[in-house]
Amino acid sequence: MIFGAGILKGMLVTLRSFVNSYFKKPDQGGLFTVEYPEKRLVAKERFRNFPFLVYDEKPEDPRCVACDICAKECPPKCITIVRDADAEGRPLKKPALFDIDLSVCMNCGICEEACPFDAIFMDHEFEIAGTERHQSLLYHKEDLLKSNGYFRQIRPSDAALIDARRKEAEDKKKAALKPAAPPEKKE
């Protein structure tokens, strides 16, 4: 072995990556950095972050029925729900108040798993930094409500499954409500 051959070999390695960084594509040994604020990676469908609420037609009628299951299941207890009531004080099947403190939320996704009404899902939104510690991270119902269309857009395969299931359930319900229809006899 020649004196210093190892050093020369090492020097060639660094020189190669120096030259490649200017002239090669990322998959051929060039730079693979994505410069974040200007460019960004395409979000994976299964990426999950903070929860949001889904509504079907209009934000006044969310899927949420204020059952409080998610608030009970939430490990860091970051969800606060107050049930709405009509003029006579009878409870309604929707929340008057739905707050999630994102500074407490630990992005576990248990709320999504626990919800029997397909009302709460994990979002792809992650740029929620604020200049203030408490109010800017405390998301209210208005901030959390997003349309089903948005959900279909960020998580198409999950949305398709859930939409199909909901449609099936609704059809069954309609069928059961129809008194005139003769009951189908099956053997």
Partner: peptide, 10 residues
């Protein structure tokens, strides 16, 4: 700059 390029950074 030079060090960054040698380490595959920008």
């Amino acid at each position: 700059k030079v060090l960054a390029r040698m380490q595959n950074r920008i």
